[in-house]
């Protein structure tokens, strides 16, 4: 077996090791490369900026712990922005395994900004039904969620005063790791109850949501850790996403180098075969 052939059949654990190093080293020794804010992320930011004090903002954290590295920074940045704009925040999730994570995130950011549960924000938790749940919220939010995550009746909460259904919500953002997620909120929510909808998602499914963005079905899109980093820059509070961007840069370039290498070896083997044959 020739050298290029050997290289093409390289043990994949070597590739794993290279990717591991490219992730670890930039996290230990950050370079802080400049990040350019894309229009789709700015659109979400601008819309929240345009909402007056006391507007109702619903954040649906539709992800599980697996997507935490990408979507939690988005949730934190959005919550920081919404709280700093004095919006009334309703947080919930359509993913049962994500309930604990969503609760921790909301409470952490709320405490950081001195917001009071029940007055400035509410965590509704998880309820089954997905599309039917959203329709139920569109009809009667107090009936769809009779109590919040902690068992407080939603009808008595100051933050939900005069918010009987989704028509009274000014902006909904779904941070999705798949389905149910942004498309579900569009289909069963925005399509029926005419609120404005924004989206956030993992990098893997971001390209799939661009058609929704282009057709105006969502008014902005925060894609993956890159999107989270852009949002952190917009609110001027760098967090884990900005820190992770160096690692992402390094891994992307490692993959590019690997692809170039494998093609070089591929063409070397092809040429050798042509010469031999």
């Amino acid at each position: 077996m020739s050298f290029p052939e050997k290289m093409l059949r390289i043990d994949r654990r070597i590739i794993f090791f290279v990717i591991g190093l490219c992730t670890l080293l930039p996290l230990l020794y950050p370079v802080d490369l400049p990040i350019i804010v894309t229009p789709e992320v700015r659109m979400v930011y601008d819309y929240i900026e345009s909402l007056p004090d006391g507007s109702v903002f619903l954040l649906s954290m539709d992800f599980d712990p697996a997507s935490k590295p990408e979507l939690e920074p988005q949730a934190i940045a959005l919550l920081r922005h919404a709280f700093s704009r004095n919006l009334r925040v309703i947080a919930m999730t359509l993913w049962l395994p994500g309930t604990g994570l969503a609760e921790q995130t909301v409470n952490r950011v709320a405490q950081e900004l001195g917001k009071v549960n029940g007055e400035d924000y509410v965590f509704l938790g998880y309820s089954p039904g997905v599309g039917a749940l959203i329709i139920g919220m569109g009809q009667d939010l107090y009936k769809a969620f009779p109590s919040d995550y902690y068992g407080n009746p939603t009808k008595t909460l100051a933050v939900l005063k005069d918010v009987p259904n989704l028509r009274h919500v000014d902006y909904v953002v779904s941070l999705a790791a798949g389905t149910p997620g942004v498309e579900t909120w569009y289909l069963f929510g925005k399509d029926k109850y005419q609120f404005e909808l924004g989206g956030g998602c993992t990098g893997v499914i971001a390209p799939g949501l661009y058609p929704l963005l282009r057709s105006g079905q969502i008014n902005g899109l925060i894609g993956g850790m890159r999107g989270a980093a852009e949002y952190e820059l917009l609110i001027d509070q760098s967090g884990s996403a900005v820190a992770g961007m160096d690692a992402q840069s390094a891994t992307h370039f490692a993959i590019i180098v690997l692809v170039i290498l494998c093609n070089t070896f591929y063409f070397m083997t092809r040429r050798a075969a042509a010469r031999g044959g």
Binding site: I36, Q248, F253, I255, I256
Partner: peptide, 9 residues
């Protein structure tokens, strides 16, 4: 891949 990370840009 280049366009989605700061180093590429």
């Amino acid at each position: 891949m280049m366009g989605r990370v700061p180093l590429g840009e």
